[in-house]
Deep mutational scan, measured.
Amino acid sequence: MAAGGDHGSPDSYRSPLASRYASPEMCFVFSDRYKFRTWRQLWLWLAEAEQTLGLPITDEQIQEMKSNLENIDFKMAAEEEKRLRHDVMAHVHTFGHCCPKAAGIIHLGATSCYVGDNTDLIILRNALDLLLPKLARVISRLADFAKERASLPTLGFTHFQPAQLTTVGKRCCLWIQDLCMDLQNLKRVRDDLRFRGVKGTTGTQASFLQLFEGDDHKVEQLDKMVTEKAGFKRAFIITGQTYTRKVDIEVLSVLASLGASVHKICTDIRLLANLKEMEEPFEKQQIGSSAMPYKRNPMRSERCCSLARHLMTLVMDPLQTASVQWFERTLDDSANRRICLAEAFLTADTILNTLQNISEGLVVYPKVIERRIRQELPFMATENIIMAMVKAGGSRQDCHEKIRVLSQQAASVVKQEGGDNDLIERIQVDAYFSPIHSQLDHLLDPSSFTGRASQQVQRFLEEEVYPLLKPYESVMKVKAELCL
């Protein structure tokens, strides 16, 4: 049975990233139509530049190519590739079939990587351009969430054990800070992308030097003109047959890092959902379990974690691919890159769409948070109580021993009897502590235990987050809708 299948058929496997999760716009960027249309555009740009620099290419040939950029006979191309065992030459023939007058000058002087690699770089750039505003929107939604809850005390956790208090907004800023680093890295790697350009079979530009009869300047002009037509500021000066596969490492490393950030955020949300302090959106008709109707599973956060793990592992592909590119190139890269580049971007696209949807509907339960604080705060307040007693004339050592005994009794009630923490009640009825009984409410005010959390939130948002989001103001209103 021949390899390949009808990918629109229910009898043929289709990647869930495309069929179930990723956005239509990201799927289109990695589609065959987008790819092969870009090949034709690159052939047109090459012909236009070659004509401008004096090669015998007519206006009629150029116009014929322009008129057929979208006229792609995919069936013919597939048949040609089956016959020739070469995808680029299959599309040269297919393009030439609908451009008979231009057929002889299509791909003039070029090698397969002229269309293959340059198209990949265009796709990487455009895919990054799709991700950047999506990530900015996630940051914006979380920034709104953090600002609104900047002063809401909550129990902090280290080692997932109760620690000092923080605020809900401050905790959210930990998430935002990681995503801001990801946004900066995505922008950097996007701006650092260079075009492969017009380089020939081993990167020496020998074929173009021959076409222009040894004119170095025209060869350099050709490279520059096509690079500018493709919208790049610069091209690699040095290439082998391909652009260095280190570029793929750079791009997928940034995406993998984004995956790590999203995994951490969504894990926190899942843990908070278990504590009943916070939940992701839950639709009115949504079913959490087929057997347990009360369940409210954090399905979206779980999906993000599941896909983020996949995204983090994909960076190993370009690392290994770059390491086995012998001399000017081997074909070890080809099949692998067809999979890992598309999957990385479709996965990143999915987790950003999902995280935006989550961040637009996060639900906080202040009463649950308050109750958990009441359970733990008495123990945390013991040092403040000791200091207040010393100020009232008591002995630190005597007070410490009193607190120690009462704390152990209260802990026994919590752990052995399943009761509430009654340390404060014990202190309130103990005559030894009568000098500070009137101060206990103040000493137990949760806001006095959150330090500068709310001020940190305000400063972080104003100095770091809002300036970073400013270039994306025009796209901030787009909502994230999930079908599944």
Rank of each mutant, 00 (worst) to 15 (best):
K170Q: 05
V390I: 04
L209S: 11
K367L: 04
M181N: 08
D215Q: 14
E425T: 11
R14G: 15
N185P: 06
M476A: 15
A150W: 05
A90V: 12
W45C: 07
V390K: 02
H159L: 02
R374T: 06
A291W: 02
Y472H: 12
A49W: 03
H437P: 01
Q205G: 10
F232E: 02
G393R: 07
I403L: 05
Y294Q: 07
G104D: 09
A110D: 10
A342I: 12
Q221D: 13
K199T: 06
I351G: 02
D191I: 12
A3M: 14
Q416Y: 13
H263M: 06
L128K: 06
V475W: 14
E80F: 06
L272F: 06
V475E: 14
A78P: 12
D445M: 13
Q205M: 13
I269T: 08
S454G: 12
L128G: 13
A110C: 08
R37N: 05
K101V: 11
S151M: 09
F95E: 01
S454W: 09
G4F: 15
M225T: 13
H437K: 11
E464G: 09
Y243D: 00
Q63V: 08
E360S: 12
D144L: 15
L130C: 09
V247Y: 10
A273Y: 00
T52Q: 13
T111W: 00
R396D: 01
A22F: 06
F345C: 12
D87P: 01
F208N: 05
M26F: 03
A381V: 11
F379R: 04
W43R: 00
T313V: 08
L341N: 12
L17C: 15
K170V: 01
D178N: 12
K415P: 04
L128W: 05
K477P: 15
F74M: 15
E79N: 10
Q375I: 06
G418K: 01
M26V: 07
A78E: 12
P281G: 08
E220T: 10
I358E: 05
G104Y: 08
E228V: 08
R296C: 14
L406Q: 07
F208H: 08
L211C: 10
E283G: 11
A273N: 10
S112H: 00
I385D: 03
A127E: 05
L209R: 08
K224R: 10
Q221V: 09
E464F: 05
I72L: 12
Q221I: 11
K470F: 12
I351H: 05
G393H: 08
C173A: 14
S112G: 07
A22H: 07
S412E: 14
K276E: 05
L468E: 12
I122K: 01
G259T: 04
A47D: 01
I122M: 11
P162V: 06
D87R: 01
M476D: 15
Q408A: 14
M312C: 08
S140N: 15
V457W: 01
T330I: 03
A110T: 13
A308T: 12
R234S: 13
Q286H: 02
K66L: 09
Y21K: 01
I57E: 01
A47Y: 00
E64W: 07
D430Y: 06
D6K: 11
L362P: 07
H93N: 12
R426T: 06
L132D: 12
E360Y: 06
G259S: 11
F157Y: 08
L209N: 15
I403D: 02
F282K: 07
L331P: 00
S290M: 01
I269P: 02
R374G: 08
D430N: 10
I351V: 11
Q439L: 13
F449Q: 04
V254I: 11
P56Y: 10
H217Y: 15
K284W: 15
P133C: 09
L174K: 05
G197E: 01
D87V: 00
A103P: 08
T239S: 13
S67A: 14
C113H: 00
Q285I: 12
I436D: 03
A18T: 15
E80R: 12
K170Y: 02
F327G: 09
D191F: 06
R372P: 05
Y294H: 01
Q164C: 08
L108E: 01
C27A: 13
G4M: 15
L482M: 15
Y34F: 08
L179Q: 05
K218Q: 10
N297I: 01
Q241W: 02
R452W: 05
R188W: 05
Q184H: 10
V429G: 15
N274W: 08
E370R: 13
R85A: 01
Q41H: 14
L132W: 14
S15Y: 15
F30K: 00
R85G: 01
I105S: 15
E283S: 14
Y466K: 14
F28T: 08
Y114A: 03
Q184R: 10
M389Y: 05
E462W: 13
V262C: 13
E64M: 08
H93S: 15
L271N: 03
P24G: 10
R234I: 09
Y21M: 03
E228W: 13
D268F: 03
L331N: 05
L174G: 14
Y432E: 09
H437I: 12
C98S: 11
A18Q: 10
L255S: 06
Q397C: 05
W45V: 07
T242A: 08
L319C: 00
F145R: 06
